[in-house]
């Protein structure tokens, strides 16, 4: 995409801090020139047995939701997704579910890379510099938590 490396941008670190959500208020990287605004991650499928783990919701609430899906919701398998910092929490939830099931539940983890887009908006519209975007990658994990088939 747009090459972000122009002189006014030199203070922006190459890897922006990991955030799982992009609703956070704009982060000021260069107070004179630009505002870094993180867009939401790409829209991903959301089924009833998909759980997207974030770092805002209480951990136990998210764990309870997964437990409910598996025990009360009648799902044979659920998918726990975590992006960036939330990977740890997603793994914790999956391992807790497994531990709580006396080893019946099985885990199958996949990893992937998610492309995230940041918007760079000039602070002062009169100044030189136009809105830019930059992409970066972040790691994600997708853990299938499932009851193995009887046979």
């Amino acid at each position: 995409m747009t090459d972000p490396r122009n002189p006014g941008m030199s203070s922006i670190p190459q890897t922006a801090p990991v955030h799982t959500d992009s609703t956070s208020p704009a982060v000021e990287m260069d107070p004179v020139e630009y505002t870094l605004r993180k867009r939401l991650p790409r829209k991903l499928p959301k089924r009833r047995n998909d759980v997207y783990v974030n770092m805002k919701t209480d951990f136990r609430a998210q764990l309870a939701r997964c437990q409910k899906l598996l025990e009360g919701g009648g799902h044979r398998e659920i998918c726990v997704h975590g992006l960036g910092l939330a990977i740890n929490r997603a793994i914790n939830i999956a391992l807790q579910l497994q531990a709580g099931s006396q080893g019946v539940l099985q885990l199958a983890a996949n990893t992937s890379t998610v492309e995230l887009v940041d918007d760079l908006e000039p602070e002062d519209p009169d100044e030189a510099g136009e809105p830019m975007t930059r992409t970066r990658n972040n790691s994600a994990i997708h853990i299938k938590v499932f009851y193995p088939d009887p046979q």
Binding site: L44, P45, N49, R76, C79, L107, A108, N110
Partner: peptide, 30 residues
């Protein structure tokens, strides 16, 4: 093996998983 990922699933991961999930979706009839 649980946790196996074939090569080059970087973009195909979601399509593949959707198939898996829709199967389970029909199974629980919701």
């Amino acid at each position: 093996e649980p946790g196996y990922q074939p090569p080059e699933t970087l973009s195909a991961l979601w399509e593949e998983r959707e198939g898996v999930k829709s199967a389970s979706q029909t199974a629980c009839k919701r």
